[in-house]
């Protein structure tokens, strides 16, 4: 077996080793190359930027703890932007495990930075089962679906919720998600109730939603950690996502290199077989 044959049939564990090195290395030796802002990120940023003072935005934490590396930076940039603009926030989640507590933890941490008060400037409604029913039900009455907030306080005791009865009182919905729930925010909430929806999704999911952005059903899109890094740049606050960009860069280059190597091995092997035949 010559070198190229070996390359063609390389044990997958060598690939795993290379991946590990290319993810760890940039944290030791950062490069910090500039990030280009895509029109989809700019559109989401502009949509939030154009909201008047004291508007009400529904921010969703529709992701599992498994994807926090990609999704949490998006929630953080959204919170930075919203609190900075003095916009009031209602958070919800359709994810049972971790959704409510992550919303609680991240929102309270950011609220503290901006001196915001729970119940007045932001509310965490938490989780309710059967997301399709929850999304549709909130169109008629949020209180019917969520009689209390995440910490069991009746909504009537929260000043902010006295102003929010259903989607008609929400100016914008900022969805951060790692699963199929995004489809329903568009096809149920935006289509039936007309509330503008902007989304931050994992990089894998992003290509699907370009069609919705183009059709005007989605107001802006953040695709994975790169999307969050672009938003951080727009806010002028480089943070977690910007730091992660080097590792992601090297990882992409490694995959391209591996694909190239695999193809050279494949063609070299075919040529040899042809010669033997």
């Amino acid at each position: 077996m010559n070198f190229w044959n070996k390359i063609d049939t390389l044990d997958r564990r060598w690939v795993y080793l290379l991946v590990a090195i290319s993810v760890i290395l940039p944290f030791i030796l950062p490069v910090k190359l500039p990030v280009y802002i895509t029109p989809e990120t700019q559109q989401l940023y502009d949509a939030v930027e154009s909201l008047p003072d004291s508007s009400i935005v529904m921010l969703t934490f529709d992701y599992y703890p498994s994807t926090i590396a990609e999704t949490e930076p998006m929630s953080r940039v959204a919170l930075h932007h919203l609190f900075r603009k003095n916009i009031r926030i209602v958070t919800v989640t359709t994810v049972p495990l971790g959704g409510p507590s992550m919303a609680e933890q991240v929102t309270r941490e950011m609220a503290e930075q901006y001196g915001k008060v729970y119940g007045v400037d932001f509310v965490n409604l938490g989780y309710k089962a059967n997301y399709v029913a929850v999304l549709k039900g909130m169109g008629s009455s949020i209180e019917a679906i969520y009689p209390t907030d995440n910490l069991s306080t009746p909504l009537s005791e929260l000043p902010l919720m006295n102003e929010v009865k259903n989607y008609d009182d929400i100016d914008f919905i900022y969805v951060v998600a790692d699963n199929g729930i995004v489809d329903y925010w568009i096809s149920i909430v935006n289509a039936l109730y007309g509330t503008p929806v902007g989304c931050g999704v994992t990089a894998v999911m992003a290509p699907k939603f370009y069609a919705f952005v183009s059709a005007g059903q989605m107001t802006g899109l953040l695709g994975g950690m790169k999307g969050a890094a672009e938003y951080e740049l727009l806010l002028g606050q480089p943070a977690r996502a910007t730091t992660g960009m080097d590792a992601q860069s090297l990882m992409h280059l490694l995959i391209i290199g591996l694909v190239l190597m695999g193809n050279i091995g494949y063609f070299a092997g075919r040529r040899q077989k042809g010669k033997k035949a």
Binding site: V15, V19, V23, P65, S66, L254, M261, G262, Y266
Partner: peptide
């Protein structure tokens, strides 16, 4: 729970690399 789940998701990087290497010909 949280770190275990993130680890599982992180394994995607390894699997994507190996699947791309094997299938992208």
């Amino acid at each position: 729970d949280k770190p275990m789940m993130a680890t599982m998701f992180g394994m995607l990087a390894f699997y994507i690399a190996s699947a791309a290497y094997r299938a992208f010909r």
